[in-house]
């Protein structure tokens, strides 16, 4: 599933990159594939981040697919900075945004067909960049990631009258904390 998206994202990023090179501020695109691990098990994730590069700094807007426990789509702002000027350099990054639930049918059925609302999302970490030409490079990073899923489910129990039952809901607030290991390409 994730692998199906990756070539397309890379192609898009590459096309955008080819339009602007050599200026101080350059468009840049990052595509990630990663592994999430926490006490809820392991899951895959994929991201695309598009933004601008200036010197050691990069800032962009990203979207992803996150399969940890509940399938979700994080939308976030990504800021990162390279720590050295060498061809191969460590970097730090931080993502902050909102997390949208996109449950599959089985997940919906298991949870009683909830209605979801956006939750918080962040991801911070360290990484290593192997640079190529024009600041392109291969990225490897590890970090700490958090996503929140908020859901509301209608319940039959608990309400003392039929009328109250019609408005009887349970609200769930899931907080998922994971280690994330990502590899990707910056174009």
């Amino acid at each position: 599933m994730v692998l199906k998206f990756l070539p397309f994202l890379l192609l898009l990023a590459g096309q955008a990159q080819s339009q602007k090179t050599g200026s101080a501020i350059k468009f840049s695109s990052i595509s990630h594939l990663g592994l999430l691990t926490g006490n809820g098990g392991e899951a895959m994730m994929a991201q695309t981040i598009n933004g601008v590069n200036k010197g050691k700094w990069f800032a962009g807007i990203g979207a992803g697919l996150d399969f940890y426990k509940d399938r979700t789509i994080p939308l976030f702002v990504d800021v990162r900075r390279e720590l050295l000027t060498q061809a191969n350099t460590p970097f730090v990054y931080g993502d902050l945004g909102v997390n949208f639930s996109w449950l599959n049918f089985i997940q919906k059925e298991q949870k009683g067909f909830p209605t979801s609302s956006p939750g918080a999302y962040y991801d911070v970490g360290l990484g290593w960049k192997l640079k190529g030409k024009n600041n392109r490079g291969f990225l490897l990073s590890g970090g700490y990631s958090f996503k929140q899923v908020k859901e509301k489910v209608r319940r039959t129990w608990g309400a003392p009258t039929i009328q109250m039952q019609e408005e009887n809901f349970e609200r769930f607030n899931y907080l998922y904390r994971r280690v994330v290991i990502k590899m990707g390409l910056q174009l």
Binding site: G38, N39, G40, K69, L126, G142, Y144, R155, G158, A159, P160, M164, N168, F169, E170, R171, F172, N173, Y174, L175, Y176, R177, R178, V179
Partner: peptide
């Protein structure tokens, strides 16, 4: 640094969830 940070983060890797419901008292 990565190894140390990861080790420190182990305590923060717990998924949690809360459930809020309405209780009715007659």
């Amino acid at each position: 640094m990565i190894v140390v940070c990861t080790a420190l983060l182990q305590s923060c890797l717990k998924d949690t969830a809360t459930r809020t419901y309405t209780m009715y008292t007659p």
